[in-house]
Design a protein around this nucleic acid. Structure first.
Lengths: 333, 333
DNA sequence: TCATCTCTTTACAACGTTGTATCCAACGTT
DNA sequence: AACGTTGGATACAACGTTGTAAAGAGATGA
């Protein structure tokens, strides 16, 4: 029903291929022919058929973005920025949720070819670098977020350890002596937790503070509820902390909730710092001190890397680091 | 490079079409032939090529979801639920952001055919019902969110007016006499604002309270910053309100921020109610009374409607209403 | 035995593009 | 005058799939 090259060709009185040449900006087309064809295109409202184009050329113009969860504001913001960046290359972004489950992540990497994707942007939670390689079918991929070992694909991230150290150092700089950490995770694949914990420890050591294991509280996932529960545990300690570094803002907001409900003041009794700079933390009471990754730049770079990778697949994997900065707000006075 | 029907057929010693029949579950295939073909399929790891399939059948298995913004937690949660619901039909969801801009919304409705979409789920912010019809090229569409006039497409929503009235009635039931509203919008297309304002006024009238225009504060958009600014205006009044109904949770969280910073207590001095039941409101201090739409059901129904619409396009547009309920939390004592 | 019916399988032609090879005309070079 | 070069346009064959029509093999009924 929609018009095809054939219809345009008939109307303009040229061959199908000539129309195709005009559409694709082929150089050697006489100006008047080009004008005539363009007129016919406009008149019929011709739109190239992606399916056919892809069948022929192998490219679909669609990239996939696989994130643990859209509900988390950090990922939602990032997704929005990536969609914007992709738009500039007139790519369409197909967003997929893995819920951080290993099997879903595996399926995604292995079986994504079904949807004819030109490239994949992937923020793995459960899978380690090695597992990612084995599944890959050669689709260009850029990894997002934390990972240490040089993996099989390009990688964009901020320096998590340095950032976590910055936040912890800030707390120590306020004169706090018992600084807790919320968000530790045992799973070997939980790189985010490992790296931020390392940064926390590094800053403690620098400040000459003891590393009290009781002050490091694990979190099943990085949601508000986990932060709230972890804070309860900390308050139940014989010698509770006077500051908390939470591994992301949601944990911090949950911790904040517990503190305020228990009658503590923030930052009076306990100072709180988070990580991600999500919008919620700019409007909580008190507002939240946090680490702000340059998310816009992350999105840009990711798309750039993927574009290069789609162009030519030969080069070795690259690691790209993006800036971050500490934003101090009310929760640390 | 990946195997096609041709390769499977060669290996199994049958015709290409027979393999196609096996793949598509065609009935009249001899059991042993089917087994042999299936073996070859497994051995080669054959995956059907979507582009070719779509080129032939016209169906792509991809639906688009167009939302004003992913950054807003309500839309993010909804998007997640819709992706899940679509998965059960093994559809892929292509998420698009309109930023609530009229021209972007128009482009989307008009030019989405480019990406060969089987159907569209659309939550319009700027466009009215009539504009939506004209642009449509016949792609099945389900509208999400608020709209009054019977439009050109199926429509899933909650009863916004009733829900807003419920929230306002709750505030009145607490004995509050000066109940403000935050989130009014003048644009004729701003249906959400109009409907919720109507519900607010209805409940005021029921409770025998005067409708003081000074207590109705507009908001440019429905974000925390708008809520915070609106609350400042309310506090500057000679006779400030003792309760606020905010047209969504983000506005309410912004208002909360302003109240607490100004030294007011919530709900002591001012009670606050929101709308959407986003996760933030469950962990703010105080926690937020709100209207909870049955988002999971919205997602389910939307996908169901779209599926029927893709099946046969003849039937007249349907309106589907989804339940909501009032959740009372600390912000209203 | 022949015609008819059902089951199973197949050949062929599309779907809308684009890459390759080719062709024609006009031009400049030897 | 014969030749290569260049710009401009075209015919044809693919890409991998599925709908259509039809052919072959048995089985059923007259």
């Amino acid at each position: 029903m929609p018009p095809g090259l054939k219809d345009v060709a008939a109307l303009a009185g040229v061959s199908i291929k000539t129309v195709s040449n005009v559409v694709n900006g082929y150089l050697h087309v006489a100006p008047d022919t080009r004008a005539r064809v363009q007129g016919a295109i406009d008149q019929l409202g011709y739109k190239p058929n992606v399916a056919a184009r892809q069948l022929r050329s192998g490219r679909s113009g669609v990239i996939a973005l696989a994130l643990p969860e859209l509900q988390s504001p950090y990922f939602a913001e990032l997704a929005g920025l990536i969609v914007q960046a992709a738009e500039r290359r007139s790519w369409t972004v197909l967003i997929d949720q893995t819920d951080g489950q290993a099997d879903r992540e595996r399926n995604l990497v292995a079986g994504l070819r079904r949807h004819a994707i030109d490239g994949l942007i992937f923020s793995p939670l459960a899978l380690t670098g090695e597992e990612l390689t084995s599944g890959g079918d050669g689709t260009p991929m850029v990894l997002l977020g934390e990972r240490v070992s040089a993996g099989p694909a390009d990688h964009v991230a901020i320096d998590n350890t340095a950032a976590a150290a910055d936040a912890t150092r800030h707390l120590a700089g306020l004169g706090r002596r018992r600084i807790a950490a919320i968000g530790a995770q045992d799973r070997p694949s939980a790189m985010t937790a490992h790296l931020r914990l390392a940064g926390y420890r590094r800053a403690l050591a620098e400040a000459g503070l003891p590393d009290d294991p009781a002050l490091v509280v694990p979190a099943e996932s990085f949601h508000r509820a986990d932060g709230a529960a972890a804070m309860e545990r900390l308050l139940a300690l014989p010698d509770p902390p006077d500051a908390v570094f939470c591994f992301n803002d949601l944990l911090a907001l949950g911790a904040l909730r517990t503190l305020l409900r228990s009658g503590r003041t923030v930052p009076g009794d306990v100072a709180v710092a988070g990580f991600d700079d999500v919008e919620d933390g700019r409007f909580s009471t008190p507002t939240l001190t946090t680490i702000a990754p340059d998310a816009a730049r992350i999105a840009e770079l990711t798309i750039d890397l993927l574009a290069e990778r789609i162009g030519q697949t030969a080069e070795p994997p690259r690691e790209v680091w993006v800036q971050h900065r500490l934003i101090t707000r009310e929760s640390t006075g």
